[in-house]
Design a protein around this nucleic acid. Structure first.
Lengths: 154, 154
DNA sequence: ATTTCTCGTACTATTTAAAGTTACATGAAA
DNA sequence: TTTCATGTAACTTTAAATAGTACGAGAAAT
């Protein structure tokens, strides 16, 4: 099963944007993410509509974070990219006439619903500020072991 | 994101097999599942190797359940089909050099691990006997409201 | 024996979703 | 008015799952 990496991707982009400070262009972000600028614009479109980032055209334009990092949770980001499915498994048929399948679906659905609720609760408990702090800790840890020193993007 | 329906599928097949009693051919199961016999054989291969079902060739051959339904959990079935990924989301890069991505991965991984553990625990608590009982309840419920009466497969 | 039935599995084809790319329009600053 | 940057639609490519084909092997019926 192929896994969707959009959430991981946006979070990564947002943190890079936050580190960078001044407006960051899609091209700069694309380079950091090793992807295409259009992919960045697409991935950030939902965040812009939700008011978490701002984009500006023309000279000196680019993307900036529009809120305090402590006020954006992973859950917010997840919502902003359109709440993609969380579970890799689903039912063979969604509204089956077959009673056997109904019984199977009921058992699976209950488990999946609970797992999703747990996941969303976890997402809601982590802010971008948390992630940024973790990043800075990792930076500090790396600089104290100089043998592992390398550029942020290898 | 496309969702894997193999677990849902095998469970369905197993219950049909259990209801049917005598050896059931891949073709019969395929008809009930509206798919191809080869798909059935493939989906049951792992179950056979794990000893949950038996297959026999030639006249009067087919598939039979090899254990008591109460001794097979959804978790067993999940294991037997090769433990496919449970989460629809993953990390953009698995072992990133980028510290920002490491921080993002760490946060997501923690949440996913917990959600998976919850899911597997739930799977382990449901046996095929549970599902069969649920199916029979649904049968009973349907037969008391005759307006909804239809063949098991519509 | 040989015909028929059934599973086993390697191989190929189809389908589907994500990701990448191109192209061009819009708007802002130099 | 040129250059830089986003906005977005359309198209292409890629990767994974699922479906389907073909043929082999074994077991039972004739």
């Amino acid at each position: 099963m192929k896994r969707d990496s959009r959430l991981s991707g946006v979070l990564h982009v947002l943190l890079h944007m936050a580190e960078h400070g001044e407006p960051t262009t899609s091209e700069q972000l694309a380079k950091a993410m090793q992807t295409h600028p259009v992919v960045i614009r697409r991935i950030l479109a939902g965040l812009r509509d939700a008011g978490f980032v701002r984009s500006e055209k023309g000279h000196g334009g680019g993307w900036t974070i529009a809120k305090d990092l402590a006020d954006i949770t992973m859950r917010d980001v997840y919502d902003a990219i359109g709440r993609p499915g969380l579970m890799a498994m689903g039912n063979r048929t969604e509204a089956p006439g077959c009673l056997v399948e109904q019984a199977v679906n009921a058992a699976l659905d209950g488990s999946f619903r609970d797992a999703e609720a747990l996941l969303l609760a976890r997402f809601g408990a982590v802010t971008l500020a948390t992630l940024a702090a973790d990043f800075h800790e990792r930076m500090a840890a790396r600089s104290t072991s100089p043998d592992k020193q390398e550029h942020i993007h290898g």
